[in-house]
Amino acid sequence: MKYQILLLGFLSVLWSNCSNQKMEDQMDAHAHEVDDHLEMAEEEVILTNVQIKNIGLTYDKIKSRSIRSTVELTGRIELPPSGKAVVGSALEGKIEEVYVAAGQKVVKGQRLFALQNLDIIDWQQQLSEQKAALVYLEKDLARQQELAQQQLAPKKNYEAAQSKFSQTVARIKALDKKLEDIGIRSDTLRYTSRFYVTAPQAGIIQHLLVSTGEYVTRATPLADILNNKNLHLHLLAFGEQIGKLEEGQLLNFYVQSRPDRILQAKIFWINEMVDTEDNSYDVHAEIVGDVSLLSPGEFVEARVIDQERLVNTLPSEAITSDKGLYYIFAVEGADESSIHFSKVQVNRGVSDLGYVEILPIDDIPDGSDIAVEGAFFIMAQSKKGEEGTGHHH
Rank of each mutant, 00 (worst) to 15 (best):
M1Y: 14
I5S: 12
L7F: 14
L8C: 12
G9D: 05
F10N: 13
L11K: 09
L11V: 14
L14E: 07
S16D: 05
C18M: 14
M23R: 15
D25E: 15
M27F: 08
D28R: 12
A29V: 05
E42F: 11
E43W: 11
I46L: 06
T48Y: 07
K53G: 12
N54F: 14
G56C: 10
L57D: 02
K61Q: 06
K61C: 01
K61V: 05
S66D: 11
I67N: 00
T74A: 06
P80C: 10
G83M: 10
K84N: 15
V87A: 12
L91F: 12
Y99A: 06
A101E: 13
A102G: 15
V106T: 04
Q124L: 07
Q124E: 09
Q130T: 10
Q130M: 15
L134A: 11
L134E: 09
V135C: 04
Y136F: 15
A142M: 12
R143E: 08
L147T: 11
A148R: 04
Q149Y: 13
Q151Y: 06
A153I: 06
A153M: 05
K155W: 11
S166G: 07
V169E: 07
A170Y: 04
K178R: 12
D181W: 01
G183F: 06
L189S: 12
R190C: 07
F195E: 03
T198W: 06
P200F: 04
I205N: 12
I205W: 03
E214Q: 15
T220M: 09
P221R: 04
L222I: 10
L222Y: 03
A223M: 13
L226C: 03
H234P: 00
F238G: 06
E240S: 15
E240D: 15
Q241V: 05
L250G: 07
N252L: 02
N252D: 06
F253L: 05
R258G: 06
R258T: 14
I262A: 08
K266I: 09
K266M: 13
I267A: 06
E272Q: 15
E272W: 15
T276V: 13
D278G: 04
D278W: 11
H284N: 10
I287E: 01
I287A: 02
S295K: 11
F299E: 13
R303W: 08
N312T: 00
N312L: 02
S316T: 08
E317T: 08
E317A: 03
A318S: 01
T320M: 06
T320L: 04
S321W: 01
K323E: 13
S338Q: 04
I339N: 01
H340P: 04
F341S: 03
K343A: 01
N347F: 00
N347Y: 00
S351L: 01
L353N: 08
P360L: 00
D362P: 04
D363C: 03
I364E: 00
E373I: 13
A375S: 11
F376E: 03
A380K: 13
S382W: 08
S382R: 10
K383D: 03
K383C: 05
K384Y: 08
G385K: 00
H392T: 09
H393I: 09
H393R: 11
